[in-house]
């Protein structure tokens, strides 16, 4: 046998072929890892401005400081919004939550109970206030319900419902230098893809909502079409309506997201199991009403 034989066993060489395991197994293992790994967000307040230097919690009292998107299934939410909007996530303070990296304002997906009990499918807004004790008193004076302020790792916080039952949070974040804050924070409609471009509050009674939010946050309004009102000077921009021109009239908050290429984004929504209306030209830009794969309504905007 003088000829050097090729080793027949070389045929067994097996480069790694990636294989996705069962989704439930993957989600369960992630949860176990979140509990096992001490993460930076567990040690640092989540509500800090990131290296982008963009204010991510609003700048003025009444601005949106944080948005919690309550979803039935957190894992599916991460997959859907990651694919559609390019969101990347960091672990939240709980296994039920995931922080969205980098977008403005700060936002998190949440698959657990609300602080005041029950689950919400949809967005809950957090608002920054200069003085949370005064704000809590104002909420109660205007017919809302809210728990007492308590210290969270990121801020003094309180959670409640307005006088029509819509949930919201308060975060005490005093304006560092009130007089240096310009009248225009610059991020009213998002700067980059994935940012929040607009918030639509669907309320049963518009006059009651104006009285409540005007009374608590000193919001003022531009009255547009019948049944609608535009809040002036908040970031991101907020509109109130009893019935969106398109979209469901379920009381709560519908989030709008900015995208660079709405046609491509609409394809991604459909590819990921969501639904998207045909893109419509609006005075402010291109718009599509969508629902994610768990039935959560949202809008896409291309300006």
């Amino acid at each position: 046998m003088p000829d050097p034989q090729p080793d027949p066993f070389d045929a067994l060489r097996s480069p790694i072929i990636p294989l996705a395991p069962d989704a439930a197994f993957a989600a369960d293992l992630r949860d176990r890892l979140v509990r096992a790994v001490p993460t930076p967000t567990l040690r640092e307040p989540p509500m800090t401005t990131e290296t982008t230097n963009r204010p991510r919690n609003g700048v003025r009292s009444g601005d949106v400081s944080y948005i919690t998107l309550g979803l039935p299934d957190l894992t599916r939410g991460r997959a859907f919004y990651g694919a559609v909007l390019g969101w990347r996530f960091s672990p939240g303070n709980s296994e039920h939550g995931a922080q969205v990296d980098d977008i403005v304002p700060m936002m998190g997906l949440w698959g657990g109970e609300q602080p005041t009990g029950g689950r919400v499918h949809g967005a809950v807004l957090g608002f920054r206030v200069d003085d949370i004790s005064a704000a809590v008193a104002a909420v109660r004076a205007h017919g809302g319900t809210i728990n007492d302020p308590h210290r969270e790792v990121y801020a003094m916080a309180a959670e409640g419902h307005d006088d029509q039952g819509i949930p919201f949070y308060l975060h005490e974040m005093p304006s560092a230098a009130r007089d240096t804050v310009s009248g225009d924070a610059g991020f009213h409609n998002g700067e980059v893809e994935g940012d929040v471009s607009y918030l639509t509050m669907v309320v049963p009674d518009l006059d009651a909502a104006r009285a409540f939010y005007g009374g608590v946050f000193d919001w003022t309004f531009n009255i547009g079409r019948p049944g609608g009102a535009q809040v002036t000077g908040v970031a991101p921009q907020i509109g109130m309506t009893t019935q969106p021109e398109t979209g469901p009239a379920t009381p709560g908050v519908i989030v709008c997201y900015r995208v660079d290429d709405i046609a491509a984004a609409v394809h991604r929504v459909r590819d990921e199991g969501g639904q998207a209306s045909e893109v419509a030209q609006r005075p402010y830009g291109l718009e599509s009403l969508c629902t994610d794969d768990q039935g959560t309504p949202f809008y896409l905007h291309q300006f």
């Binding site: 072929i17 294989l19 992630r30 890892l33 790994v37 993460t39």
Partner: peptide, 15 residues
């Protein structure tokens, strides 16, 4: 971190 690597690494390790 292990968590940020998880989505990318899981199919490799499992595969």
């Amino acid at each position: 971190t292990l968590l940020t690597l998880y989505d990318r690494a899981l199919p490799q390790v499992y595969g």
